[in-house]
Computed example of a mutant assay.
Amino acid sequence: MNCTFPRLVLFDLDGTLLDSAPDMLATVNVMRAERGAAPMTLDALRPHVSKGARAMLAAAFADMANEQREALVPVFLAQYELELAKHGSPFDGIERLLGAIEADGGRWGIVTNKPEYLAKQLLPMLGWQTRCAILIGGDTLPQRKPHPLPLLHAAQTLYVAVEDCVYVGDDERDIVAARSANMPSVVALWGYRLPDDEPAEWGGDVLVEAPQDLLDAAIWPRKLSESAQ
C-alpha cells in the first residue's frame, strides 16, 4: 500500500492544532479585570501561550511576585475551563490535514502538556473525540515533555514503531521530546513563539510554515528504517 502520510502523526495541541490564544486571552483578562488591571492584547499574550499557564501569568502579571503568581495557577485553570473553545479554533488548514491523514488510512493523536482533564473536554467541542486515536496530557504520565515518555507511550499504546510516527509541535520542548524519543519531528512555524526563539536551532527534521504544506507527501520526514507499508 502506498501511503502519503506516516502511519501515526502525533500533534501538540495549543499552537499546533488549536489556536487557543483567544481563549487564553479571555482568561487572563477576566483575572486582570478582577484585580483592577486593563485588558491585555492578543499580540502581547500570544507568544507565551505554548509555554504554559505560568508563562502566561508571568506575562499578564509581570509586576507580581512569583509566589503570588503561583497561587493564581488554579484560578487561571478554573477560568480557562469556562473559556474552552469559546473564542479559539483550529488553525486554518488543520481540519483538511486531519481529514487527509484519515483518508490515507493513517491515525493521529495528541500529546500535550495541557492538563488531561482540560484536553479531554476540548475534543468533543472540536468534533475530535472519535477521531483522535490517543490523547496524552501533561499529567497523564509521570513525565511530560520535553521528556520523551509521552511520545514513546503513545507509539507503544497504538502498536506503531517510533520510526513510523512523526511528532508535530510549535515549541522547543516538543522537538526535544521527539529527538529524545528518536521520533521524526516537524516544527510548526505557524504556532506561538517568543521573539528570541530560534526554531531552526531546535533540531527538528522539517520546518513547516502552514498546516496545508503538510498535504505534500514530500514534506514529511522519514526514518531510513521505515517499515514497509
Rank of each mutant, 00 (worst) to 15 (best):
H147T: 15
R107G: 12
P148F: 06
W128K: 03
P148V: 07
I134Y: 02
L98A: 06
P115E: 00
R107P: 10
G105E: 01
W128N: 02
W128G: 03
L122M: 13
V111I: 00
L126P: 02
P146L: 11
I134D: 03
A103G: 13
E116I: 12
P150M: 09
G138F: 04
Q143C: 15
Q129T: 06
L135M: 07
L141G: 07
C132F: 02
A119V: 12
L98Q: 08
T112L: 08
P124E: 00
L122C: 13
N113Q: 04
R96C: 15
R107S: 13
L118R: 00
L135D: 03
K120C: 08
E116F: 06
P146E: 11
I110F: 00
V111M: 00
G109V: 03
A133G: 13
G106D: 08
W108D: 14
K145V: 13
A100G: 06
M125F: 02
W128I: 04
K114W: 10
Q143P: 14
Q143M: 13
E102R: 06
K120P: 01
A133F: 12
L98V: 11
L151F: 05
P146W: 07
K145A: 14
V111R: 00
G137Q: 11
I110W: 01
R144S: 13
M125G: 01
P115Y: 02
T130Q: 14
N113V: 05
L152K: 08
L97G: 08
H147Q: 15
A133L: 14
E116A: 14
I134M: 09
K145F: 10
G137S: 15
R131K: 15
A133H: 14
T140R: 12
R107F: 08
M125Y: 04
E116C: 05
I110T: 01
K120H: 11
P142T: 10
I134H: 07
Q129K: 11
A119F: 04
L98K: 07
A100P: 01
Q129N: 13
L118G: 00
A100N: 03
L97I: 15
H147D: 15
R96F: 12
I110E: 00
P148A: 14
L149W: 09
R131D: 07
E116W: 04
G109Q: 06
A133K: 10
